[in-house]
Nucleic acid binder design. Structure first.
Length: 474
DNA sequence: TGAAATGTTGGGGCG
DNA sequence: ACGCCCCAACATTTC
């Protein structure tokens, strides 16, 4: 009896190196039919945003090229995943399927339904973990509950064996004949009006871009990471977040690369930098862990008392924030970096998010939605965690009274103004002492094209503290 | 993974 | 020499 082979369902694991589902499919013997199914309506309230779709388009092209180099190709389909898989089973004779787990609530529910239906129909369904260092089940406090504070979580998981990386198979046997594939353009991922120039000039989606970014970081930046990671005007971070989100590189491969580099390079600071980067990798784990255990958090605060927080509706202020026209240079520079490149430095994300939530008193959900649409690394776990952390309503959250002063943050983390001058060219000529508070420059030196502050810092701070007090006493 | 308000200390200017 | 004041620098507490 011939082996009709296995369907390999790609989702957010768009790579062939260290891909457990791919290895499982190849090991079954017989042909492997790799498929990506466009299913935006199966992502609940969070279908991929515009920047994510742009990235996905490029990444699917890269995956197809990698599969072709191994004697196969990527089949593209659109439609409900279960129906599509059934149809591919009929076309190829496959009765087996492999995929790597996802952890977002809508994907968890969808995958469970697909797996149940296929198993009932006699399929072999093999589910692997290719996206996390630590599976979220089984990591619990002494009371048997999920951790809600990072440090104890980290101590509980940091020394666990994550296993060796899996090499990409040399050959990934293709089915004969190849099933029909939709054209990549038919997935309608790329924008109809081309606004993606800044994305193209900033990023190389795909595993090659991911590995190049990782190598550059290890060679140029890891030793200074603890100091430079907070300086947005420097290239002090690895910039791997979109690659990790789409699974173009596995967190395990990143971990091993960092550990090997630290073991080989005795330069001062490398070990310290490597430790700090690994800690960041575990923040990503923590965010996914939390989303898995608290699946309501993309829409609702983890801390229930925040359900009665008196958020304001202010479309004009929201729009000013989105466009980078709040009048606070660090915030505006970040929001313009975001629109141009699909990414924002993490230090600036904190300052910009804090400004929306605390200075403008606009709900973190509005911020989460904007980031979701504009970030190339938009990731439901990281985005939800980050915004709830900022708003004070999440796990291990910033206390509500911790209100970033955008002027002080600018002075401290952009001391030479390189970041603000890059993204706000209308301020580039301001003397450094006025750069982070342009309203205090003498009138003849002010930049006419730059708006005055949308709110005054001290007044906004007091308003935020009063809103917090109101939530506690209501 | 803050910032502001408030408290404390110690050196220097000065009568 | 001494007490007094000012205030920067640092520490603590408060939001």
């Amino acid at each position: 009896m011939t082996n009709a082979g296995t369907i390999l369902w790609f989702r957010q694991d768009l790579r062939i190196a260290d891909n457990p589902a791919l290895v499982a499919a190849v090991r079954r013997g017989g042909p492997v039919t790799p498929v990506y199914i466009g299913t935006p309506d199966e992502e609940g309230a969070w279908p991929p945003g515009a920047a994510s779709r742009w990235w996905l388009h490029q990444s699917l092209a890269a995956l197809d090229a990698a599969l072709r180099a191994r004697g196969n190709r990527l089949i593209l389909r659109r439609g409900p995943s279960l129906e599509t898989i059934r149809a591919m089973g009929r076309e190829t004779g496959c009765r087996a399927i492999c995929w790597n787990r996802r952890y977002e609530p809508a994907a968890v529910a969808r995958d469970a339904a697909v797996a149940r239906a296929l198993k009932d129909e006699g399929w072999d369904v093999v589910i692997s973990n290719g996206s996390l260092l630590v599976e979220p089940e089984g990591v619990l406090t002494g009371q048997g509950r999920p951790y809600q504070v990072f440090t104890p979580f980290w101590k509980a998981v940091r020394d666990r064996d994550v296993g060796e990386t899996l090499s990409a198979p040399d050959i990934i046997p293709a089915p004969r004949p190849l099933p029909a594939s939709a054209a990549l353009a038919a997935l309608a991922l790329e924008p109809t009006v081309d606004w993606a120039e800044g994305l193209r000039e900033t990023w190389t989606p795909g595993p090659d871009g991911a590995n190049a970014a990782l190598r550059l970081f290890l060679e140029e930046a890891v030793a200074d990471y603890p100091e430079k990671r907070d300086i947005p005007g420097e290239r002090g971070t690895a910039r791997l977040s979109p690659h990790l989100h789409f699974g173009e590189i596995s967190p395990r491969a990143v971990l091993h690369a960092i550990q090997q580099h630290a073991a080989l390079d005795s330069a001062p600071g490398v070990l310290r930098g490597a430790e700090a980067v690994l800690r960041q990798l575990y923040w990503r784990e923590f965010a996914h862990y939390l989303l898995y255990h608290f699946p309501h958090t993309p829409e609702r605060p983890l801390r229930p008392e925040f359900a009665r927080f008196p958020w304001r509706k202010d479309p004009a202020a929201l729009r000013a924030w989105q466009r980078g026209r709040t009048g606070y240079p660090l915030v505006d520079a970040g929001m313009r970096e975001l629109r141009r490149t699909g990414w924002m430095h993490n230090r600036v994300r904190m300052a910009a998010a804090s400004f929306l939530v605390k200075h403008l008193l606009i709900s973190w959900l509005e911020g989460a939605r904007w980031f979701w649409d504009t970030l190339v690394d938009a990731d439901l776990a990281n985005n939800t965690f980050g915004w709830q952390w900022t708003a004070g309503c999440g796990a291990d959250a910033a206390p509500y009274f911790r209100i970033f002063n955008p002027v002080l943050q600018g002075r401290r983390f952009d001391p030479d103004g390189a970041y603000v001058r890059k993204w706000l060219p209308e301020l580039a000529g301001l003397p450094q002492r006025f750069l982070h508070e342009p309203w205090s420059a003498p009138p003849d030196q002010r930049a006419a094209a730059y708006p005055p502050p949308i709110v005054e810092h001290a007044a906004a701070r007091h308003r935020a503290l009063e809103a917090y007090a109101a939530m506690r006493t209501l």
